[in-house]
Design a protein around this nucleic acid. Structure first.
Lengths: 134, 134
DNA sequence: CGTATATATGCACACAAATGCACATATAGC
DNA sequence: GCTATATGTGCATTTGTGTGCATATATACG
């Protein structure tokens, strides 16, 4: 094999910027944190209740308090939550402005994709070149 | 324990809608698909090259073609890519409009969070109630 | 037809992440 | 000080997912 070539777009700075943006934006702690059902459940609870200590958050959830504590640490490292310690309790709360800003920046980064990556748009022409390529 | 209570927001439809939105939007196939470094790398390559068959995409990547094939299937199920079969080859291409629309819808869903979930905003008042709660 | 190439799938294995328990640490209250 | 409660951490186990090889399926080519 190795008989492929269609580096049609490679030289265009528009597509290179697009590709860089995709790499920077995805596969980050923010995304990974939101891929876990339990962590999303925790988020939901925090939205409903407001700032909560770990025990309150863990109440009613299936997992052990220690597990919830770990998940909360992940959410905090991702910037999704903030913490405040009061006495022996640690309160967690959603950082709404941060989360909205994060998603907004992602949208900005990939927005050109709507125009530049219409599926199979230039396909009809390119496929001919590929067939004959060595 | 179980001596917690701060269901202050629970009755407000604004927060309930917010919580529902968070659940619907996160922890979905779209997010999971973008959490994998190899899949992001594939996306980047597709942005640069345009529509590609599996062999072309796998060229230069560390993993076996079969692995790349699996990743592409994940991306397609997540709506991130579309496929077109030409002869014995299957071409994949990024669905830019879909991806942008997806992120835009997520942003719309969580946008109220910027105002409604400022971290520890109502915290000063609520904490007093919690301390005295039975 | 039979052979060669492209892609997808079954299966086994490796590795990472989630989980639960026990325990360490920190703080409140006596 | 001692005891009780809240949170976080070490460790072992389980579970999920990525990976590679062998193989099945589909299509082109002769």
């Amino acid at each position: 094999m190795d008989t492929h070539n269609n580096e049609i777009r490679s030289l265009s700075p528009e597509y290179m910027a697009m590709a860089e943006a995709a790499l920077d934006v995805f596969d980050t702690r923010f995304f990974k944190a939101l891929c876990e059902p339990t962590r999303v459940e925790i988020m939901r609870k925090l939205v409903l209740l407001g700032a909560c200590d770990v025990g309150t958050i863990a109440d009613g959830l299936a997992q052990d308090r220690s597990v919830i504590s770990r998940h909360l640490a992940v959410l905090e490292r991702a910037g999704i939550c903030q913490t405040r310690k009061i006495g022996r309790r640690v309160f967690y709360d959603i950082d709404g402005p941060h989360n909205v800003a994060k998603v907004a920046s992602i949208l900005d980064a990939i927005k050109p994709m709507a125009e530049l990556c219409k599926p199979f748009e230039e396909f009809s022409e390119n496929i001919k070149q590929q067939k004959g390529a060595a």
